Simulated scan of single mutants.
Amino acid sequence: MQLIHTASAPSPGGHYSQAVRDGDRVFTSGQVGVDPGTGLTPADFREEVRQCLTNLREVLSASGAELTDVIRTMCLLTDIRDFGVFNEEYALFFGDHRPARSTFGIALAGGFRVEIEAIARIPHAAGEGAS
């Protein structure tokens, strides 16, 4: 098991890792919309979703994966009425790739309005015996 960390995404605010790689799988912790450079969360919900997805992409990249390698996401919204805006931004980031997804409306710690976690498959490098 390999712990994943990148300065390109917010550092964990508790006793957990940004992600854990186990063989050819990576399991991300929930990523939120905090700008890792400023420590601030955008006031606009759409911008918060974009930052959240950017952070997810950076954590995946640090593990050797991309958004197109994602198998499943779990998405958390504090106001399910924001689903339309959330879904638009999610679709822009994932494009034609459509991982399995669950989306829930819940209360989130820290005043965040969106959180996304993912499971991805790390692609094998050429010549590593991909099956």
Rank of each mutant, 00 (worst) to 15 (best):
F93H: 12
D82Y: 01
L53E: 01
A62R: 02
I80C: 06
T103L: 10
I80E: 03
R101T: 14
A100E: 13
T103G: 00
L56E: 00
M74G: 02
Y90G: 02
P99S: 08
F93G: 04
T54C: 08
S61H: 14
S63T: 06
R81S: 15
L67S: 02
I71S: 12
L92N: 06
T103M: 10
R50W: 12
L77K: 02
H97M: 07
L60H: 04
R81D: 10
I106A: 03
T73G: 00
S63W: 01
L76K: 10
A65V: 07
V70I: 03
A91Y: 03
L76E: 04
T103D: 00
S61I: 05
A91M: 07
E88I: 12
T73L: 11
L92Y: 12
F104P: 01
S63D: 01
F83V: 10
R72C: 08
I71M: 13
A62P: 02
T54E: 03
E89L: 13
T54N: 09
L60C: 03
H97W: 14
L108H: 02
I71P: 04
E89Y: 09
I71W: 12
R81M: 08
R81A: 11
Q51M: 11
V85W: 05
D79L: 05
L67N: 06
T73E: 07
D79S: 09
F94T: 02
V70R: 07
C52A: 04
A91E: 08
R98F: 07
L56I: 01
T78C: 07
I106K: 15
F86G: 00
G95Y: 12
D96K: 14
A65M: 11
R101F: 14
A100M: 10
Q51F: 05
L76S: 03
T78A: 03
I80L: 13
H97F: 03
A107D: 09
H97N: 06
D96Y: 11
G84V: 13
N55V: 10
C52V: 06
V59K: 00
P99C: 06
L53P: 03
T54R: 15
T68Y: 06
F93M: 12
H97K: 06
P99Q: 04
G105S: 12
Y90L: 14
S63R: 02
C52E: 02
E88V: 14
D79N: 14
S61P: 00
F94A: 01
E66F: 11
V59L: 05
T78L: 04
F104E: 07
I71Y: 06
C75W: 09
R50T: 03
I80N: 00
A62K: 06
D82N: 13
G105C: 08
G95H: 12
E88A: 13
C52S: 08
T73N: 05
L92M: 11
R101K: 15
L56N: 00
G95N: 07
R81N: 14
D96H: 09
S102T: 15
R50F: 09
E58M: 14
L92A: 11
V59M: 01
P99L: 08
P99V: 05
D69G: 07
M74H: 13
G84A: 10
G105H: 01
F93S: 06
T68H: 10
G105P: 08
R98G: 01
T68W: 04
R72N: 07
T68C: 00
I80H: 11
